[in-house]
């Protein structure tokens, strides 16, 4: 960026912009996207989204996410209850998949992004390669957290035998979906090049 070049966020082409005023809005000659040296308001937007996800993470895990009706009795279960249920049923593989996708990945995303944001804030210049790799992992893994929501959607459609037994979503589903969306947007608004600017 010091060289008077901007690389386009959308198509990756390098554009020579020379010494233009910082306020000028330029568009990419190849893909027409607006050109920026860095994503706009990257740090503050990412902070806001990560704090929001951290707050929403609590109700997402503490409130029930699913309700099973069986012969007139209603049973609510949280994400963790569902995982424990699998472990009791000797279904360790599935239990582990849900645990990783629903609890470990969102937690890792929130903590990982906090480490990255703090290290930019305090200008820590160590482990930059590792932090870059961690960010790429956070980017890649984000969407897999939707797994549990899809499972609940499928269960509530398939296991619906009227008054006998049925499965329904419970309030945490909304909070959990919001956590996934916020962390995905956090990874999108964050500009990894800021790590190297310090």
């Amino acid at each position: 960026m010091d060289a008077g070049f901007i690389s386009c966020h959308d198509c990756g082409i390098l554009v020579n912009v020379g010494n233009i005023a910082a306020e000028t809005i330029l568009s990419c000659p190849r893909c027409n996207a607006n050109l920026h040296f860095r994503k706009t308001h990257s740090i503050s937007r990412t902070w806001a989204l990560i704090i929001t996800s951290a707050i929403l993470f609590l109700p997402a895990n503490l409130l029930p996410i699913m309700r099973v009706d069986f012969l007139g009795t209603q049973e609510y279960s949280t994400i963790m209850d569902g995982i424990i249920y699998f472990f009791h049923g000797q279904e360790y593989g599935i239990g582990l998949i849900i645990f990783i996708a629903s609890i470990l990945v969102p937690l890792f995303k929130i903590i990982g992004m906090l480490i990255i944001l703090l290290s930019i804030h305090f200008k820590w210049k160590h482990w930059l390669r590792h932090k870059s790799a961690m960010f790429r992992f956070i980017e890649f893994v984000g969407r897999w957290s939707m797994l549990d929501i899809f499972v609940i959607a499928l269960m509530s459609t398939l296991v619906d035998f009227g008054t006998l037994t049925s499965t329904q979503a419970a309030p945490a589903a909304t909070y959990f979906t919001a956590v996934v969306v916020c962390t995905m947007f956090a990874a999108l608004t964050f500009d990894p090049r800021l790590l190297w600017d310090a």
């Binding site: 960026m1 060289a3 070049f5 690389s7 966020h9 990756g12 082409i13 390098l14 930059l128 870059s132 790429r136 990894p192 090049r193 790590l195 190297w196 600017d197």
Partner: peptide, 10 residues
């Protein structure tokens, strides 16, 4: 030339 989208190295 290209710039790395991860760290802006030219």
């Amino acid at each position: 030339l290209i710039a790395c989208p991860g760290c802006d190295l030219l």
